[in-house]
């Protein structure tokens, strides 16, 4: 899990760096604008990222992104600029703070809980040896019975197939 956070951190940092590099060099292209717009949502259009949204309002936003980039803003600064004015809902990637932090924490908690429950289950089931032996129908263990010889394999396959039916 730790490593996972590390990757997110790295991704964010590299994003920032890329932004800085781009902001320093030359003319702002449509691709630069789209790169930023992909990470933004306008407050009006539901579930449509800004880079593909076709409303006039979104076209204006894209133009504004271009102006900001030309003025030397980094990608992240542009995103912050819009967040300050329109709130958290414009960010495609929820912030890791405030209420939105839960969105990041809960899946991790859920996964950990899942792993925990599974370990618990494994323990409980593996521990119940006495109950079990009585109820298991005796069948040759597939481990012992099998080698890689095709005849054996056919036999095992046939047996497994029969058991299925």
């Amino acid at each position: 899990m730790k490593r996972w956070w590390l990757w997110i951190g790295l991704a964010l940092i590299s994003l920032l760096l890329v932004g800085v590099v781009y902001a320093q060099g030359g003319e702002v292209t449509k691709d630069d604008i789209n790169r930023v717009a992909k990470q933004l949502y306008c407050p009006v259009c539901e579930n449509t990222p800004l880079d593909v949204c076709e409303t006039q309002a979104c076209a204006d936003w894209r133009e504004q992104i271009g102006e900001l980039l030309a003025a030397g803003y980094s990608d992240q600064e542009v995103i912050n600029y819009f967040t300050e004015r329109y709130g958290d809902r414009v960010r495609a990637l929820p912030r890791q703070a405030g209420f939105a932090l839960w969105v990041w924490i809960l899946p991790v908690v859920g996964t950990l809980a899942g792993i925990g429950i599974m370990i618990q289950l494994f323990r409980r089931w593996m521990g119940r040896r006495t109950v079990a032996t009585a109820t298991i129908p005796v069948e040759p263990s597939p481990v012992r019975a099998s080698s890689d010889l095709p005849e054996d394999y056919v036999a095992r396959l046939e047996r497994e197939l029969r058991e299925w039916e």
Partner: peptide, 18 residues
């Protein structure tokens, strides 16, 4: 979020991907 804080947030594809 809208219910609790009054402000909506967006959880976009980048979040789901990660």
């Amino acid at each position: 979020s809208e219910l609790v804080t009054g402000e909506k947030i967006t959880v976009g594809p980048p979040w789901f991907d990660r």
